[in-house]
Simulated scan of single mutants.
Amino acid sequence: MSIERTVLVTGATGRVGGQVLAHLATAGTVRIRALSRDPAAASAALGPDVAVIGGDLTEPDTLAGALDGVDAAFLVFPSVTADRAAGRLVATLTEQVGHVVYLSAHGVPEHPEPDARPDGTILGSHAHLESLLARSATRYTFLRSSGFAANTLGWAPQIRSSDVLRWFVPEASRALIHEADLGAVAARALTGDGPHRAVHHLTGPEQLTQAEQLAAIGAALGRTLRYEELDPEQATARLFPNLPAEVGAGIIAAHEAMVGRPEPVTDTVRRLLGRPALTFARWARDHAQDFAGPR
């Protein structure tokens, strides 16, 4: 079987990037390349079937070797912290790569301003990257994801040691997506011949409150877990001690907004993959071991 294209994956040792690699590996006609700031560690983690090339997205001048001969790239950008490098990065990428599949986020305006500038927020950073790519990429695919199911791994330390989760806004309702679905959609885009300018809003198949998410994790563990609500001041101080106060407050405010306006559900995963999106209950079973441990 001949190799048809070379695909570069950034964030390859992360949850979504790892799923992209796993799905690409089944394609058979793809030469897979991963970008890492620490090639030795990434090579040990990813195994011999993935060529790991050194490079840093925040330093675009380091990417020449990684981009040489690449047909398509999966881009996970370090939002906010690397916004200063976004312009140079996109210019470097799009000069050498024909198709960029960018992991963005739901909440970016449907049609971002052509010159959208970063404003210090995650959505502002995504809008900025999208506007840069839309101006200069020969072909792009934006994966505007709902909340990641894997974000609930932030609960794991508490659940491993107790049946009580002390968190905020239990009634915030979300359509969390399994990283395996993101990886499958990304791999399909990277290896297919779809439209030159595609934007996909990707979600899980259902809306669940945070309390219902906790119950699903409990069911996967065979335990009854209890949600103890923290007020915004307690949550900011206890859960986000290393973030600027306004950032922690913004996270909580966004969840408060999802009580009255839950995260929407789309059928995009079903439409693109020909099967339903994976449920949060499935995700909880897949990750039960992450929440288990000495008690």
Rank of each mutant, 00 (worst) to 15 (best):
G11H: 09
Q234I: 01
Q96T: 10
T203D: 13
A27M: 13
L63V: 08
G120Y: 05
G192E: 00
A72D: 15
G293V: 09
W155H: 10
H287N: 12
R135D: 12
A235K: 00
Q96C: 05
N151L: 00
I217Y: 07
L103Q: 04
T6Y: 13
P264T: 07
H200V: 12
D163N: 13
F168R: 09
P244N: 12
G274Q: 06
V164M: 04
A198E: 03
S145Q: 12
R15V: 12
D231S: 10
D61C: 05
P114H: 08
Q289A: 15
L129P: 06
E171F: 15
L46E: 07
G260N: 10
L214M: 12
V169P: 08
I122H: 14
F291M: 06
R117Q: 03
R144S: 02
A42W: 09
P109V: 15
L208C: 05
S162D: 13
T62M: 11
L63H: 01
A253H: 02
P244E: 07
L123S: 02
T13N: 04
S161P: 10
P39H: 11
A184D: 00
T58V: 08
E229V: 09
S125M: 01
E130Y: 06
T279H: 01
F148W: 11
R174C: 07
Y227I: 08
L63I: 05
T13S: 11
E4S: 14
A149P: 05
L239H: 11
V16M: 09
S131E: 15
S36C: 02
V247C: 07
S125E: 08
D193I: 13
V108E: 14
G65F: 03
E110R: 08
R275M: 03
G69S: 01
D68S: 15
T13H: 10
N242P: 08
L273I: 00
F74E: 04
L225S: 11
H111F: 13
L46P: 01
A44T: 11
L8F: 07
E113R: 13
D83Y: 14
Q207I: 00
V50H: 12
A51S: 04
A42D: 04
S136K: 03
N242R: 07
I217R: 09
V247Q: 14
V199L: 01
Q213V: 09
G17E: 14
G120N: 00
P60R: 12
G194L: 03
Q289T: 10
A284D: 01
Y140R: 13
G55A: 01
A116E: 06
H200L: 15
Q234P: 11
V52I: 02
E59D: 14
A91E: 15
H99E: 00
A175M: 03
S36A: 05
P170H: 04
A216S: 08
T141S: 04
E130R: 07
D38R: 14
Q289M: 08
R144D: 01
R160S: 07
V247F: 14
T6S: 09
L221R: 01
G218R: 11
T138L: 15
E263C: 01
L273H: 03
V80C: 02
W155Y: 07
V185Q: 04
T58I: 05
A34C: 07
R282C: 05
A216F: 05
G120S: 04
A172N: 05
T203I: 10
D38E: 12
S145K: 11
A219S: 07
T236D: 15
L132S: 14
E246R: 15
D68N: 14
F280N: 06
A189I: 06
T26Y: 13
G194Q: 02
